[in-house]
Amino acid sequence: MSTLDSPLDSPPDSPSDSPATPAPELAAPGRRRFSMPAFLHNRRALVGLVLIAVVAAFCFLGPLLYRTDQVTVRLDLADLPPGAANPLGTDASGYDVLGRLMTGGRSSLELGLAVAVTTTVIGTLYGAVAGYLGGFVDALMMRVIDVFLAVPTIVLLLMMVSMFTPTLWGIILLLSLLSWLGAARLVRGEVLTLRTREFVQAARMMGGTGRRIVLRHLVPNAAGVVIVSGTFTVADSILTLSALSFLGLGLPPPHADWGTMLSAGLNSLYDGYWWQVYPAAGLLIVTVVAFNLVGDAVHDALDVRLDQP
């Protein structure tokens, strides 16, 4: 350690000036910025992750173990209560509810994740560029967002799905188009404060291009808020699809999703067919909460400021 000390820091004539930076003051090398222990230390994170893993396994691996026919309508088997053949009973069309929860969850999760990823990427880049450039460009880019925001989401969705036959990817595209605005505004706000920080000026001093500053410095530092908003988007999109399905404008049969199951089940709630409502509602809530928990925890684990006492 002392071999590395600058001789200028410890002149031989002054005994008090021993090594300016004794080794013990520096932490051991290799500690990660995103520390897994800190992340796992967080109970919410653990609970959220386990829940997501369970739901994902249920939807994607479940059908391999528990095969059901989700295509053929069997009115003779309609509205059966839970029993040996159908652990969670059947719905009005005679589909097995447990199996339908699995296939329905698949489209819900796929939609949520796909929308979250696309909106996060688009929103982050858009917001970072607007915030970094500032001035007139920023004003213009933000007005574009305002125009998009002025479009009522549900009305537009209803129009589109009534004009075209909805497909999963069609709805993903539409939802993505509508929900990157929030991420963009969040990132822009973050970047507006980040770009005045001295490390951004330092990068300019080195001759760094705007592209480099945005991608290397601004986006990673805004990642905390983006990831949180991303996980919320997963939850929001699943709920939006449910809302569409609930209004009867979701994916056409024989496609399934949790929202459609809920709206169908509600019709027969008064008949006492509880198994057609509560399992779907419960899974929907668990999934949404799990993603929000993980979002919060990721935010905390990425937040540098929390590391300082």
Binding site: D9, T21, D307
Partner: peptide, 17 residues
């Protein structure tokens, strides 16, 4: 790093450390 009196393994650390 040597010139400013920091040990070589400082390169692997993050600023908050």
């Amino acid at each position: 790093l040597a010139e400013v009196g920091l040990p070589a393994h400082a390169a692997d650390l993050y600023p908050h450390e």
